[in-house]
Design a protein around this nucleic acid. Structure first.
Lengths: 193, 193
DNA sequence: TATCGTTGCCAACAAGCGTTGACCAACAAC
DNA sequence: GTTGTTGGTCAACGCTTGTTGGCAACGATA
């Protein structure tokens, strides 16, 4: 997820290591933290449970390694202030559709301390800078970013986690059409109160 | 939660029973389904774990008894179509602020099959009828209700479960001011397509 | 060929889980 | 007072969990 140079000299066990990570992501996404047991993950990856411990230390270490995520949000500098809403929503739906790591993170964040902490970090490091650039008064950025995240994560929750049928049935374009104005307003509309 | 007439003749163990339910709600809300162990719930209520089994059969039964919830949504018939958004948001914030059952349900729904099923039931039985009355074309009610729930549950997620600091910091009136127009639009604005 | 670190499998551990059944104390009916 | 029902305690069960250490096979180096 974040190794550009071959600082690590290509171990013979790399195949096993990535197999474990893939299985872990799948199980965390489907079951959450507690029910995704190391034994189940190992069986899913066709390896021995003890290998997980050798390569990732313990279950927390495995989780940390499995769900390191870069939202790849557009560069705040190059973001047009007028269609920031549409851009953000489109990008989010894309990410969620193809990347099960996000579902894993949301499921775990709901019941696990470390998972929630990780989500707060992503919020602060990745979404907040965008809001800081897109909204008029930087001092309002945290509140506006929180509103944006409530709508985006709420959609993810009802669509990918709780699976409300009408939410699952929405076409990506419909989602963008409905949510883009909301996000746009949260970012740029004058503060009510 | 739903006994109007004294069909049950007031057992001597009622105090214990409700103490268990209260402790269960608290633990489910704080820890989710798996980590809220029967032993922890029992200790919290100062009773023996075996009493939980005697009175509620098993852990699933306890959960079902602990999180039966009535959203007490306003009667769809008496709902003014013009400020349905504000009414709904105000009502939701009120409920979430005072009732930890909702947090318990959301936490459990994220990782537990039965919990998610319960949330889908509440959505279909309680929110959908309101949408059916408030939106122009009844055929669009499911999609519109899904959008409304995505925003409302998203706020609950970031505020009460993940506890994003800026989301926690929002005053109830701010929440209403920002979210009411969103919900109103999801209910009554012409379908974009 | 001998050596040594790496990779993998296996069996086991202690702890915690949901759940059960035997047993005692308090009360109600007769 | 005796009897039967109810409320509550205690100890244990079978099972799963995360985690550990020993041991055999492999691959490169010498």
């Amino acid at each position: 997820m974040m190794q550009g140079k071959p600082s690590t000299p290509a171990r013979r066990s790399d195949a096993t290591r990535t197999a474990i990570l893939e299985a872990a992501r799948e199980r965390f996404a489907a079951d959450g933290y507690e029910r995704a047991t190391i034994r189940a993950i190992a069986k899913h990856a066709n390896i021995d449970p003890s290998m997980v411990m050798r390569y990732y230390g313990n279950k927390e270490g495995l989780f940390a390694a499995a769900v390191s995520i870069d939202l790849k949000l557009p560069d705040p500098a190059s973001l047009s202030r007028d269609d920031a809403g549409r851009t953000l929503v489109t990008h989010f739906v894309d990410m969620w559709e193809k990347n099960e790591v996000l579902t894993a993170l949301l499921r775990v964040g709901a019941t696990n301390q470390a998972g929630a902490e990780r989500m707060r970090g992503i919020f602060a490091d990745q979404l907040l800078p965008v809001a800081r650039r897109a909204c008029p008064d930087p001092e309002q950025a945290p509140a506006r970013a929180a509103l944006v995240s409530s709508q985006l994560l709420g959609l993810a929750l009802t669509r990918y986690v709780l699976r409300f049928p009408p939410s699952v049935a929405l076409a990506p374009e419909e989602i963008v059409a409905w949510l883009a104005p909301t996000v746009q307003r949260y970012l740029t509309a004058p503060y009510p109160a």
